[in-house]
Design a protein around this nucleic acid. Structure first.
Ligand code: FES
Ligand code: FES
Lengths: 144, 144
DNA sequence: TCGATTCCATGATTTTTATCATATTTTAAG
DNA sequence: CTTAAAATATGATAAAAATCATGGAATCGA
């Protein structure tokens, strides 16, 4: 469904959010360990997220990544996905035609469109705050 | 969403079905042309589909691929997807955890499960006959 | 200022996926 | 029985995605 880049990116962001909840700044090593991801690869992903203002990075001793509490409830899953994979998942054709449209639909267009819209709506209506709270309470997990 | 293998596989199968409707057997070259796919790659995919009894192949002069009319309405999209990509799309975790389960859910589990089930149901409830008829009538397209 | 720590930038390598190429087998037809 | 047309099998190459590695830049504390 999603690329590894996107999977790691979402997991990392949720972890950072869950720590920022209690004002904890977290470093790369810690993130990679907690979400069970390759460290260097994760670093690249975090850089992209940082450039897209989804997470905030602080260099130097005692630095790390964080997400301001205020913005946490405003960051939606869709933003993370878009930053990391573009919007193909929201607009692309299920059978790989170069354009999805009503005028030139593929055989599964009508049925696929529905699923795609559900997915888009889900990503659009899910914010970081609710995801992070599940981690904090121990109800949900980011590895294994 | 789907791999190229799967996209080409579905498109090829629909095309074969639409031709089998009017008792036309079709060859590899023709298929690749009509669905705009690389010929040799398509050949490999067709072999897999053939081994999985989704399409029927006939070697030699005048040979090609076909789908018996009787079975056409019984072949579901889900079978094609499973044959070509396994069942990860039906059972896999949206965030890439190795197992998806209620006991050890990832943060998006509840919401993702819903989408995944919708997709699974769609693939399960869509058969080749209906897809092929759209092609025959000119309402849907397999390329561009 | 200096050194340690941490993110940042860039490129190399590996793995996976997609694509290409070649030779073999099967079969209908002449 | 030979030939040509097809699918099949297998392996090689190319492209993309994922992973690794290295050096640089910023920041803090001493
Ligand atoms: S054209 Fe294929 S999904 Fe819309
Ligand atoms: S555990 Fe992630 S979708 Fe079920």
């Amino acid at each position: 469904m999603f690329s590894k880049t996107c999977e790691y990116g979402i997991r990392a962001t949720i972890f950072i959010a869950s720590e920022s909840f209690q004002n904890n700044r977290v470093g790369l090593k810690d993130i990679a360990k907690k979400i069970d991801s390759p460290e260097a690869f994760t670093a690249k992903i975090l850089q992209i997220l940082s450039k897209n203002n989804i997470i905030h990075s602080i260099k130097g001793v005692g630095g790390g990544f964080e997400i301001p509490k205020e913005t946490m409830s405003q960051i939606k899953l869709s933003q993370i996905v878009t930053a990391l994979e573009g919007n193909q998942v929201f607009t692309g054709c299920g059978l790989g035609l170069s354009h999805c449209s009503e005028e030139h639909p593929c055989p599964v267009h009508d049925k696929f469109k529905f699923i795609r819209n559900e997915l888009a709506a889900m990503l659009e209506n899910t914010n970081l705050e609710e995801l992070a709270s599940g981690i904090k309470s121990g109800d949900t997990f980011l590895r294994y």
